[in-house]
């Protein structure tokens, strides 16, 4: 079919598919699912750090954290907007999220226990997100790629502020240093899991690579993240909780230990430490706000009738 060949030609030439172009159903569905999960992750991701805005121990940190969590709302918005160019509807996607029919990144189902977690999330979680997301700035679907450019620019500020907070705390009291190490211990392995299951078990990877929705495999991106993080940890003066991390000159990469995939699947399936709480908070905000959204829509409808 001509349209399909034209689609394949555009993708193969590394050009962008735009909203009104013809595209295979599978491509459209895969994109909606992936972008919606990404959007949900941004919105749910506001909670673990948002919890600490009220308790941030300096006014500068409070402002930075509030601005960061606000950025995440913005990222969610950009991404939901990208799904809408594909015919999806934000309200519908939100319903799917709060009914547990669509997922978000499992990382946000881990609890934030101390203020050091804010720094470690910035450094490791946002760092892992950047590894995942920078290639998406060149993804084949135009609106997604453009949203990701904006997201990545802001994420780099997030990672920077996180690392800077940790550097500051590592110059502080022994109690602060211990807090940082403890947070690194808790977040390192979940951060590695953010790249998804190993390539051999990743059912969606191959087709997504052909369509150039994805540009690198899970394992490639995970390796890049480890290689990036090891020298950063050294510089910071913390130990990554994996005795198997070692430079492998032959591969030109760091080796690292085995990931506990049982834990990964347990959290994905909804039995992580905070799954229920995160969804419940989102559901409550959405339902508590319904009368406000209705009021504004009713007001607009009245004004239109008068006009």
């Amino acid at each position: 079919m001509d349209l399909e060949r034209e689609f394949e030609r555009v993708v193969a030439a590394d050009h962008r598919i735009e909203p009104r172009d013809w595209m295979p159903d599978g491509y459209r569905k895969t994109l909606i699912r992936q972008i919606a999960q990404h959007a949900h992750s941004e919105i749910i991701g506001m909670q673990p750090e948002g919890n600490w805005i009220s308790r941030a121990p300096s006014l500068r940190r409070k402002a930075i954290l509030l601005a960061k969590v606000q950025d995440e709302a913005g990222h969610g918005l950009y991404l939901y907007a990208a799904t809408e160019t594909l015919g999806a509807d934000r309200e519908d996607l939100t319903t799917k999220l709060i009914e547990g029919r669509q997922k978000y990144s499992s990382i946000f189902n881990y609890p934030t226990l101390t203020f050091a977690d804010v720094g470690v999330i910035g450094w490791l979680v946002d760092g892992a997100a950047i590894c995942n997301q920078v290639p998406l700035c060149r993804t084949s679907y135009g609106p997604y790629a453009r949203a990701m450019i904006r997201v990545c620019k802001e994420e780099s500020f997030h990672q920077r502020q996180g690392y800077e907070l940790l550097m500051t705390m590592m110059r502080g009291t022994d109690a602060q240093k211990a807090m940082v190490q403890d947070a690194v211990n808790r977040w390192w392995w979940p951060s590695l899991m953010m790249f998804g299951p190993p390539d051999a078990e990743s059912s969606n990877t191959e087709q997504s690579m052909v369509w150039r929705i994805k540009r690198h495999t899970n394992d490639e991106l995970r390796q890049r993240f480890v290689d990036m993080s090891v020298p950063q940890a050294e510089k910071l003066g913390v130990t990554l909780p994996d005795p198997k991390i070692a430079w492998n000159a032959e591969r030109g990469h760091h080796d690292f230990g085995d990931i506990d995939w049982d834990e990964f699947w347990q959290v994905v399936k909804g039995d992580g430490p905070c799954n229920a709480e995160r969804i419940e908070n989102r559901r409550k905000a959405h339902e508590d706000g319904a009368w406000v959204r209705e009021a504004a829509a009713a007001y607009a409808a009245k004004k239109e009738r008068v006009a």
């Binding site: 699912r33 992936q34 519908d92 299951p197």
Partner: peptide, 21 residues
């Protein structure tokens, strides 16, 4: 397979249990 049909959100039966990505 034009884009009109995609204006209807019900067109999208998104798999209910998406394991990853």
């Amino acid at each position: 397979a034009g884009d009109k049909v995609y204006r209807h959100p019900t067109f999208y039966a998104i798999p209910e249990d998406v394991p990853h990505l």
